[in-house]
Design a protein around this nucleic acid. Structure first.
Lengths: 142, 142
DNA sequence: TATTGTTATACTCTATAACTATA
DNA sequence: TATAGTTATAGAGTATAACAATA
């Protein structure tokens, strides 16, 4: 039996958790033709109004990729573009009411989908887990 | 301020954690031209020798998607195919030594990449977090 | 000159559909 | 008949490169 460090152990729990969480979101998104990336964008737009380049950098994508992604989301009425007030080169992106409604619906569905996992922990442990994760992330918005 | 349930709070920590973990893995994989899906496949093949259809079902992908994915991985010498011993229709997939070496290298790099996050917790909290996650997953292999 | 965003092009990942071979 | 796997084809997501407009 190979000796594992504490950090290694944590990684071996974190990675499967991430894959399972993403798989659940991917499945729910697929029913509405939403990619994980677009769901992440919608999550960001819940409380921000970034410009294209900010969004691209935050997601680790190229500007050209953002253009295509936002094009498709805009055509579907989920997000909209508007010129930035101070920099005439820049374009702000924000959510439409339809997009906001969709995001809340997704949120609910993801919660339902992951309930079989999360509910293996009692309420106190759920709070403890949420607290540890938040401390680990030092909570930058995703 | 909207009232949130314990489960909702947990979800709002879990989803960003998953996105950040996936982003780190995606970035590391990209340097070696490995998609998240292929990394997940390699992770599975560390200790299993599934047939094509099993792999597809486990990942939530179509058989045709698996064919392409395994084709490319096989051409790169990371995995190999062999006929199943008992069912002549079936094909088993397994890792090559090169694939196994790559997986260990990736594992190390992901650990390094996430260290800035995980090390915000002390060793005791890291153990506690790993334990909670493992209990939540009831540890099915991913 | 550098930055913001878009367009054109190419490749990977994915699904659907049609097919062959075996159970 | 049903299942295992492959091939052909098409669409979404991504990157690179070239471009226009503004800083």
């Amino acid at each position: 039996m190979k000796q594992m460090t504490t950090r290694e152990n944590l990684l071996d729990a974190l990675v499967p958790t991430a894959f399972i969480t993403m798989a659940a979101m991917n499945k729910i998104g697929a029913e509405k033709d939403l990619s994980l990336t677009l769901m992440r964008v919608l999550g960001i737009l819940r409380d921000r109004r970034p410009r294209m380049a900010e969004l691209a950098q935050h997601l680790g994508l190229k500007k050209s990729t953002m253009s295509g992604l936002i094009d498709r989301a805009e055509q579907r009425g989920l997000v909209a573009r508007a010129p930035n007030a101070v920099d005439e080169r820049a374009i702000d992106v924000f959510m439409t009411p339809a997009g906001a409604a969709l995001v809340e619906e997704l949120h609910e569905q993801v919660q339902q989908a992951l309930a079989p996992l999360t509910d293996r922990l009692n309420a106190a442990d759920q709070r403890l887990l949420a607290d540890l994760l938040e401390r680990m992330l030092a909570f930058p918005k995703v």
